[in-house]
Write a protein that binds this DNA or RNA. Structure first.
Lengths: 228, 228
DNA sequence: GAACAGAATTACAGAATTGTAATCAAAGAC
DNA sequence: GTCTTTGATTACAATTCTGTAATTCTGTTC
């Protein structure tokens, strides 16, 4: 279940909140000052932070900015200050919600849930190239051609990625080598040729594939879509 | 130098253009009909296409749409039709420029250069994660921490990428394993642990690094920024 | 046809990768 | 203190990767 960091200097409020949230199934870590909160941050890894604005040794909003450098966890301010300026400041300092005291515990719960829901661990979209019948996933190290997925070694994937990202235009093995290895070298041609050959084999590229890797007479390669 | 595909059925115009462009240093491939042009596309790989609109066996704009599926090369329409509707149609069918006959050859040249310039092979931006003092480049298979660049094996890079893309939040080895291997298995814990250990070593992570990979007591890992 | 050039593929060997298992280390329980 | 548990690291071996070199293939010129 989610971990909540509760920063609050009023011991009564802290106790009430902590008990309530623990009953709701959350793991609650408490801090009663900016200093303690900073320390807690080193210990626990919160999924959400409930942050009082006025703390004995500093301002919650300042702490929020520091906190943001360590985590993207949503921050909900809890405070008696209800002036508009203060609310704006809260959001501006990186807060995600702003609740004024006194508040209803069920409202608090609902807002916490809303934040955690929004912040649901979205499986981060992997960077990929998607063409008709050809996709390349750099994260997974795979490519799929005509519905078949293949896991490719780095060098082949790099070449395919380069070709696919500029489909239809000629790329010299010079460019390919330079992009992949950072520098150029005498016998770059052979290395690239061999790797492209391997790539074709890995992808089972043949006359029936939707794409071909063609070589020009000027030492360049092109990825082309074949249409029947 | 760049390859230009010239599609034009008037043999005089074709000859004049071809000669002029070749003198400018371009390699020019000619076609006098849609059919020939389609055929040429299989042979040459143009960097730019000059396309007459009215061709004996079809409409240049229709051909443009087909061509677009094969290459992103810029298309410049050359035509006597100067009605606004026609111009709009030209761009709508995927064209990049529209020149009405008669035209000055130097204007043609300038427009070609402009297209090639805009379409300059922009080295495609590699997908990367950039955090202060930590960057990850999936294409290159590298990560740099505190200014030092390290080339990482795939598994370690995948884990680092996952952790970094959700910096500060806990990720279970369960999730990591599932994301990387697609399925889950009995002894996933050990595999992830070993790879994280290797990752730390590869990155020379120690007390002085800007980041740490911390384990929670609940079988989760977190990438955290350390600040002094 | 032979001879050649250039491209594509294959062979090979050293290096790197990686899952599993063994070992080590740290923290609690007793 | 010992014992136990759990996490971190190391060892190891099978596999994969990959640059170089050798070979084969293909098209062109004579």
């Amino acid at each position: 279940m989610s971990h909540i960091l509760l920063v609050e200097d009023d011991s009564d409020i802290m106790r009430i909140n902590k008990t309530f949230l623990e009953n709701e199934g959350y793991t609650v870590h408490c801090a009663d000052s900016v200093q303690t909160a900073s320390f807690m941050l080193e210990e626990c890894v919160p999924d959400l932070v409930l942050l009082d604005v006025m703390l004995p040794d500093g301002d919650g909003m300042d702490f929020c900015k520091i906190l943001r450098q360590k985590t993207q966890a949503p921050v909900i301010f809890l405070t008696a200050r209800d002036e508009n300026d203060s609310v704006v400041m809260g959001f501006r300092s990186g807060g995600d919600d702003y609740i004024t005291k006194p508040y209803d515990l069920n409202v608090l719960k609902a807002r916490i849930e809303a934040q955690l829901r929004r912040n649901v661990k979205q499986s981060p979209q992997h960077p990929r190239i998607e063409l008709p019948c050809l996709t390349i996933d750099l994260f997974a190290g795979t490519a799929s051609l005509d519905g078949n997925e293949y896991s490719l070694p780095q060098r082949e994937l790099q070449i395919l990625y380069m070709l696919a990202s500029q489909i239809g235009s000629r790329i010299s093995y010079h460019d390919i080598y330079k992009t992949i290895y950072g520098c150029d070298v005498e016998d770059s041609k052979n290395t690239i040729r061999v790797n492209i050959s391997r790539l074709k084999k890995h992808l089972n590229m043949d006359d029936m594939s939707s794409y071909e890797i063609a070589a020009t007479s000027e030492g360049e390669y092109v990825l082309r879509r074949i249409m029947f």
